[in-house]
Design a protein around this nucleic acid. Structure first.
Lengths: 171, 171
DNA sequence: GCCATATGAATGAAGG
DNA sequence: CCTTCATTCATATGGC
């Protein structure tokens, strides 16, 4: 929990020294090494970002879904979620420019890491260094077709961390 | 079952797009999200690998059993988990002669019940970010007391596997 | 009522 | 930072 707290208060990639300190502190509770702390931050950051990303894309989908989509059953697929994020200091505020990220983003993740609905506080907090990823018009791809967001599933799947749900046996 | 089929036909780690498609397809049968598909593949692959591994180790045991063990009361190897190993360079643990595993098999080690107290800190892996970081300052100093590993939580009924850094839940 | 097993989800650790 | 893997956690379920 200590780690979450730090994370929450803005620590993202602690320096070696910070890691040392944290480690020392945590070692009061159990055996731990610097690398554990290091990994923790790496993973946590990444996963948090994924969630965020996902949340955004979901948002996006909702936005788009406002119209069209007659019925469930649809096809669409194709990168509904794919938002190329420009990593690398995307200009903070939503500037949608393209920026033609010199790199080519390799793939982008789809969305895993959903769950969690309690928006709970934080998240507003990340005014810090957020290497946010914003969507930027990925020149290629994405244009493919604008069919709409799959949400067509008829049912909104959101339902909260709904795990399970009917899923069973569709496989 | 669709998933098994795909798996069978070679899909192991579908790309984001593939996942999307699959998801879309499956959503005809029930509520499902990309992450479910993602997890499914991850788990399936892992478990398949695991089975295989297990099977091999069993095999191995049989081979060895010709001479070593007095009785073949197989100690519920069950997990016989070993510990950290690096991916890559399969370390057949216990390098028994032959094995000729040389193949590209991704199979890595199997562990036979050689308990062996692992001296932690065998992280020879130096060469990573964190290591570089960690090495700088005077390491050695802050060793606060180590109290021990809050052993409690780690309880499992199976065979030991010794240490296993029960780092659980200190966060 | 326990077990053993199965499977989705999550997290730690590495490699790249 | 991104992927992938191994492990582990938590349930769900089928037997006995």
């Amino acid at each position: 929990m200590i780690l979450e707290e730090m994370y929450r208060s803005g620590v993202r990639t602690p320096s070696a020294q910070q890691i040392q300190q944290i480690t020392a502190h945590l070692s009061n509770y159990g055996r731990i090494e610097g690398k554990n702390v290091f990994y923790w931050f790496q993973n946590h950051k990444a996963r948090e970002r994924q969630k965020l990303r996902r949340r955004l894309s979901r948002h996006y989908q909702l936005l788009c879904s406002g119209h069209s989509l007659p019925h469930h059953q649809l096809y669409c697929m194709q990168d509904a979620t794919a938002f190329p994020q420009s990593r690398h200091h995307a200009t903070p505020t939503h500037s949608l420019h393209l920026e033609s990220n010199g790199g080519l983003n390799l793939l982008e993740k789809m969305e895993i890491g959903n769950a969690e609905e309690a928006p709970e506080t934080n998240y507003e907090a990340f005014g810090h260094d957020w290497t946010s990823m914003m969507m930027l018009p990925n020149r290629r791809s994405l244009r493919t077709l604008d069919l709409f967001p799959t949400t067509s599933t008829g049912l909104k799947d959101e339902c909260a961390t709904s795990k399970s749900s009917s899923s069973t046996s569709i496989n």
